[in-house]
Deep mutational scan, measured.
Amino acid sequence: KRPMNAFMVWSQIERRKIMEQSPDMHNAEISKRLGKRWKLLKDSDKIPFIREAERLRLKHMADYPDYK
């Protein structure tokens, strides 16, 4: 399994928030909203998620050196 990218790290947190506020919302609608919100997010606000994704990528490389 591939490591999460910055969007996936961010969306995992945000998806939980949306599901708590709107438990009846369909997953497809949540995904659309997350995509739009990520695009509107300032680059500076994305930095912590980019760093976490990089950390996960490096850990994945160390844990699975033969992964292609």
Rank of each mutant, 00 (worst) to 15 (best):
K1W: 06
K1M: 08
K1D: 14
K1N: 08
R2H: 06
R2E: 05
P3Q: 12
P3E: 14
P3K: 11
P3W: 03
M4Y: 08
N5W: 04
N5R: 01
N5G: 07
N5A: 03
A6I: 01
A6Y: 01
A6D: 03
A6T: 01
A6V: 04
M8R: 09
M8L: 11
M8C: 07
V9G: 01
V9Q: 02
V9A: 04
V9Y: 03
V9P: 03
W10I: 00
W10V: 03
W10S: 00
W10G: 00
S11K: 01
S11L: 04
S11M: 05
S11V: 03
S11W: 03
S11Q: 06
Q12W: 02
Q12Y: 06
Q12S: 10
Q12F: 04
Q12N: 13
I13D: 03
I13L: 10
I13P: 04
I13Q: 10
I13W: 03
R15I: 07
R15Y: 05
R15N: 02
R16V: 11
R16F: 05
R16Y: 05
R16W: 05
K17P: 00
K17R: 07
K17A: 01
K17N: 07
K17G: 01
K17H: 05
I18G: 01
I18S: 02
I18N: 04
I18A: 04
I18K: 00
I18R: 01
I18L: 10
M19P: 01
M19V: 11
M19H: 05
M19S: 08
E20W: 03
E20G: 06
E20P: 03
Q21D: 06
Q21A: 09
Q21Y: 03
Q21W: 01
S22C: 13
S22P: 02
S22H: 13
S22E: 13
P23M: 01
P23W: 01
D24M: 08
D24R: 06
D24S: 10
D24H: 14
D24Y: 08
M25D: 05
M25Y: 02
M25P: 04
M25C: 07
M25K: 08
H26T: 15
H26S: 15
H26A: 15
H26V: 12
H26E: 14
H26P: 15
H26F: 02
N27K: 13
N27L: 10
N27E: 15
N27F: 07
N27P: 15
A28Y: 15
A28I: 04
A28K: 11
E29S: 03
E29P: 09
E29M: 08
E29D: 12
I30M: 07
I30E: 01
I30K: 00
I30S: 01
I30A: 03
I30V: 14
S31G: 09
S31T: 14
S31E: 15
S31D: 15
K32F: 07
K32T: 10
K32I: 08
K32P: 04
K32A: 11
K32G: 05
R33K: 14
R33P: 00
R33H: 12
R33T: 14
R33C: 14
L34G: 00
L34A: 01
L34R: 00
L34S: 03
L34W: 02
G35E: 15
G35C: 15
G35R: 15
K36S: 11
K36A: 13
K36N: 14
K36L: 11
R37N: 15
R37D: 13
R37P: 01
R37E: 14
W38I: 00
W38R: 00
K39G: 11
K39D: 13
K39I: 05
K39M: 10
K39Y: 07
K39H: 04
L40V: 06
L40P: 00
L40M: 13
L40K: 13
L40S: 14
L40A: 14
L40Y: 06
L41P: 02
L41W: 00
L41C: 00
K42E: 09
K42S: 15
K42W: 01
D43R: 05
D43K: 07
D43H: 11
D43F: 11
S44K: 12
S44Q: 12
S44C: 04
S44G: 05
S44D: 08
S44E: 15
D45M: 05
D45H: 05
D45Q: 11
D45E: 12
D45R: 02
D45V: 05
D45A: 08
D45F: 05
K46C: 01
K46P: 00
K46A: 00
K46G: 00
K46Y: 00
I47H: 06
I47K: 11
I47T: 09
I47S: 06
I47C: 03
I47F: 08
P48W: 04
P48N: 04
P48Q: 06
P48G: 03
P48A: 03
F49V: 01
F49E: 01
F49T: 03
F49A: 03
F49M: 00
F49Q: 00
I50T: 06
I50E: 13
I50D: 03
I50G: 06
I50S: 06
E52I: 09
E52F: 08
E52A: 07
E52Q: 06
E52L: 06
E52K: 03
E52W: 03
E52P: 00
E52C: 05
A53G: 02
E54C: 05
E54H: 04
E54V: 02
E54Q: 12
E54P: 01
E54Y: 02
R55F: 05
R55Y: 04
R55A: 11
R55I: 08
R55V: 07
R55S: 06
L56Q: 11
L56K: 09
L56T: 07
R57G: 07
R57I: 07
R57V: 05
R57C: 12
R57P: 08
R57A: 14
R57M: 10
L58C: 07
L58N: 13
L58W: 07
L58V: 12
L58T: 11
L58H: 13
K59W: 05
K59R: 10
K59D: 10
K59I: 12
K59Y: 07
H60C: 08
H60T: 12
H60N: 11
H60V: 09
M61L: 12
M61D: 11
M61W: 08
A62E: 11
A62Y: 11
A62W: 07
A62M: 06
A62R: 13
A62I: 09
D63R: 10
D63L: 08
D63M: 14
D63W: 09
D63Y: 08
Y64H: 13
Y64K: 15
Y64Q: 11
Y64N: 15
Y64V: 14
Y64M: 12
Y64I: 11
Y64R: 14
P65R: 09
P65V: 11
P65C: 08
D66E: 15
D66M: 09
Y67V: 15
Y67W: 06
Y67F: 15
Y67N: 14
Y67D: 14
Y67G: 15
K68T: 04
K68V: 05
K68E: 10
K68R: 12
